[in-house]
Design a protein around this nucleic acid. Sequence first.
DNA 1: GAGTTTGAAACT
DNA 2: CAGTTTCAAACTC
Length: 706
Amino acid sequence: MDVVSPELNILLPDEIMDTEAIVMDDDPPAESPAASGQSQPSADAPIPMETDVLAVPEIVSLCSDAPPTQRTQALTTSITTDSILCSTTSATHLTSGGLQKLSANHQIILNKVASSPGADTTRSPGTTTITPGGQKFMVTAIGKSGQSIVLQLPHTGSKPGSGQGEAKANPQHFKVLTIGGRTDLKPVMVGQAVSSASQMSTLQAQQLKTVQIAKKTQVSSAGPIKFIITKAVNNKGLTAQTSVSNVITGRVLSTSSPVTPPRTITLSETLSSNSKIAISPLKSPSKPMKPVQTVTVGGPQFKTIFPLSTSSNVQQIQVPGSRFHYVRLVTATTGSSTGQAGSHCTNSSMTAKPMVVNTAQVRMSVPIIPAQTMKQVVPKPLTSSGQVLTTQTQQRLIMPATPLPQIQPNLTNLPPGTMLAPGSGNMGYTVLPAHYVTQLQQSAYVTLASSSGFPTPTCIQTQARLPLNGLSTSDAASRPRKPCNCNKSQCLKLYCDCFANGEFCQSCNCTNCFNNLEHETERAKAIKACLDRNPEAFKPKIGKGKEGESDRRHSKGCNCKRSGCLKNYCECYEAKIMCSSTCKCVGCKNFEESPERKTLMHLADAAEVRVQQQTAAKTKLSSQISDLFTRTTPAITSGGGRMPFTFVTKEVAEATCECLLEQAEQAELIQQPQATAERMILEEFGRCLMRIISSAGKTDCPSINC
DNA sequence: GAGTTTGAAACT
DNA sequence: CAGTTTCAAACTC
């Protein structure tokens, strides 16, 4: 997968440097006559915006692809807010047409049409459509209390051959669409989808697809509408959810009149079978959100890329108990400010939820940090005045529209999972390590799961990682990160293992460390410098060898001269691989038939065996000691007994010594050899011990009689 | 723990 | 590209 999909790039040129969001409503004219009445793009505003409150109820409809006779129930709700923020994680390429099918099995077209009640919500161009077979779509309005919208897709027969089998495998496949900013997400089920709250548990257990649209209280009609749809799509349950998610930000058409053109939000994507979508409200009306603007681009390198931000809108966040730095990404805004940085994301249950998408084609990940769970350490103002703007937030764009000559050519060479976040540096990006993403996601999941009243079974997910310098994903994830000890490199050169592995320094012993978010500018520059020197600087050094060769081999090969490639100085040896033809080492002994290597291996094996034996012995000894202590404890507690050392009193010791001396005198008296004398003494000592032990539990003061 | 060795990375 | 320097990890004592 391309880092920047061509479809996405189509949208980028006008977006890259401004704060406009991606329009998600421009269906192809041929297919969307309903959308033809939308705000017409202009030179100044190529992307229609929707900013005004609708005076007329809007119809949010979800229609299936089924024939008109199988129309989806359309629920009507009055939407009082003008902007919608959604975030979506998906493998979808957002096209200008707003639709790109990746699979026929799961297609979701979410369409919001501003029209009077009763407007035709059937499957017509520009209407929301969900077409997985037998899936139900639940829409919940959270912008207004009690205005939950539940849309249910009729359990129509799936299109022949388009995932029908999958639909059968998961006959109850729900999708929840929530509109508004209400925090207490309690979807109301209508129709045959789910009729009671008690059924939500069932819903959770099943494949749940939730599309939740957070609506912002309408403050102004001038600003662009934020529209982020967040969807987490899992593949085949909760296990092995290696995925990448994509957040697509866009705008809703702006309407300034009650008689507005149809407002259409079209989100199209293809979901894998058994996929799940977890959508979250991103803000509440009372607390304007900070749009977490993230764009993830997945691919072989599992990149997560955050869009360029012209302002320093990265807020560093320190999560107590976490050894990772977190960063909150906040979009620049143009409206008034509240000065409440970091307090706008109010819905912890669904806000800033890392979404994981797993599709057959791409893997993307977008961690969106729940603001409430994080302690902001170094809030970075969105504006020069340090104020956080809360109105007319402008959604930034996902990916640069035009190629970034500085970064983009090297995007594929960043460390696995590298995330480019808006930064204040010259590059405008902050490269976040892969582990940050995972850790951040996991942390967010846990937080969300614990704090959310909304079902979150889909949130407990894990993210597989790509190999990290030859380590398997599990190894890379589980291995204890070795703290670095850098002094002069500021941890911004490849000397630093943390930096080289794409990690931030954390709990390291380094001095003058710049490998953290506090020095994002320097770090970004350093990364760029490294990539300039070597475009593959952050690629795993240990990769697959050529066909017929060893599975693992050093990409560059080592250059050892003195170590014989049998010490950890050698990167090949360190990676437990043998040197290959790519190595330029001298006196290499790290090859298959090398006797030195075999000897070393044997020694290593022997050492390992010894370690295991020692460990076993220690374990056994500890167990015995524990057992001994356990046996003596009852005597101590129940019989008023004493610890063993308490009855080896001074008197007892003196008596014992007297016995031993007497025994020695006797041996000397009978002129026994020294060896015999020693044996007699030791035997006497043994008898003394036996008497001490035997009398310990009987009397308070054991007597020693020779 | 201090000092040495080593080789990758960085620099020229 | 090659030689040199810098650097931090590995290693030794």
